[in-house]
Design a protein around this nucleic acid. Sequence first.
DNA 1: ATAGGGTTAG
Length: 631
Amino acid sequence: MQAKGACPNQYTLSSVYKCCSFDSNLQFGKGVHAWMLRHGVDVDVVLGNSALDVYLKCNAFQYAERLFELMDERDVVSWNIMIGAYLRFGDVEKSLDMFRSLPCKDVVSWNTIVDGLMQCGYERRALEQLHCMVEYGTEFSDVTFSIALILASSLSVLELGRQLHGMVLKRGFGSDGFTRSSLVEMYCKCGRIDKASIILRDVPLDFRRKGNVGVTSKETKAGIVSWGSMVSGYVWNGKYEDGLKAFRLMVRELVVVDIRTVTTVISACANVGILDFGRHIHAYFQKIGHRVDAYVGSSLIDMYSKCGSLDGAWMIFRQINEPNVILWTSMISGCSLQGQGRQAISLFEEMLNQGIRPNEVTFLGVLNACSHAGLLDEGCKYFRMMKDAYCINPGVEHCTSMVDLYGRAGCLTETKNFIFENGLSHLTSVWKSFLSSCRLHKNVEMGKWVSDMLLQVAPSDPGSYVLLSNMCASNHSWDEAARVRSLMHQRGVKKQPGQSWIQLKDQIHTFVMGDRSHHQDKEIYSYLDTLIGRLKEIGYSPDAKLVMQDVEEEQGEVLISHHSEKLAVVFGIINTAHRLPIRIIKNLRICTDCHNFIKHVSQLLDREIIVRDIHRYHHFNHGSCSCEDYW
DNA sequence: ATAGGGTTAG
């Protein structure tokens, strides 16, 4: 254009700025500005604002600041841009000062300040500003509702969410797709998935399959977001089965199931441990032609390793091959989870060689790996590396892992010192881990002391009593064990009910102890009785005394034989082909008797059985378990 | 000009 000698008008220049902003092309943006000055073009407020936008998109904060100072004329847009910029670049006070001194605040000014404060982690201050906005009399826009609903969910203030919901309806935003999706998300995050699903029911059907292939209107996108939020909502609230049901409905009804929803669902599969469904989704994902990116890849790696298929995890990891921390961390944690401690460590070293900077989660994976493999020196080395070389402050989880590491290696005095030196004596998880170590290394005296500490710190945690009772039982102090149990009853501490899950075809079957509600109930119990008889012949002896689980109240041989994981295992044996591994998920720690039972089953029936309990992963084969009887 | 979903750990 310049070569032809035509003179660009302001409209053209503004468009040029838009392009620079889109491409983050700072050089070109600066060039345009210089050209305007050289040719004496009148830089009006709109062009000035466009230039501000380009500089900020390119992270050239100083340029923007200087331009703002030099502008002859500024409007509310210029101010809003700068207020937002100061928040994003971390100068919250400066931003608030500017905001307060702004005489002509519009709705965007308010939206910017509320959202910015929230993004900076000042949620309470954001809420204050929202209240000021109401007092000031500024009408909410759709954007205000989105921001405010997110604020309500991040503060987990259902009451605020409800009020906003009322305002949304009154102001006529109830049919706006994105506002509705924010409402769905707010209710999910505040734990009211019932409310969320009612709103979802009103989501119009026009984005469904009928005659609408390939169309992605704003409403379509909003509908997908709502459904995606609903699926994630189920997942966040632990309602995995409902989440998967909603996802299936989505696959059946929708034109597109997008990559973000898929990520959430894979993560749901990982958490509930249903490998088959995860595999289906993986296949479905490839069928619709999406590339597996680092997000989906990390969740797939996590899913495969948590479902006991480390091969699957490696396949994904090699296939993606990106220097992404989370991707590597997922693989390291996966190895660690499966008891492949040394493998996890060598992967970590390779990661460092490739120049990828580990984060706090990576170190947690590595420390757990060391603990699992009993590598005390390495564990200490990495703990120091984390603090000194990477300036990461050890969190509760890292410290618990170290306590586990020392304890498992039998260094009980060091464990004790570590706890006090690092100020961890208020943490339940730390004392629990320590107590397990005392039990493992049969140090009764230390165990008693630790028990006292544990009960002081966590008098209402059922797990404390269970551990304690188990320790007494393994020392044959039956009276003591009984005393612990009655203390627990006296104090009104209730144990969480134990549950086990197994997936068959596309159905998830849930079992609780003594469950009689299953339709194959008779078959399961009679097979279980026969099986126990046969197991006794090869050396299994049910030991009720060793098994006050994290779960069941009652003791006695009959009741322990009906623990949920035994029911689930038997259900698996009855209903699946002989060659296939049986995969069980359990919501608590597996008890000693069930562990023993499953070891013998794997031997008697020559069957691979994989149990994932709350703590770790048990891979039973030929009569032994991958955890080497430590969990 | 302002927002609007996702990954690892626990």
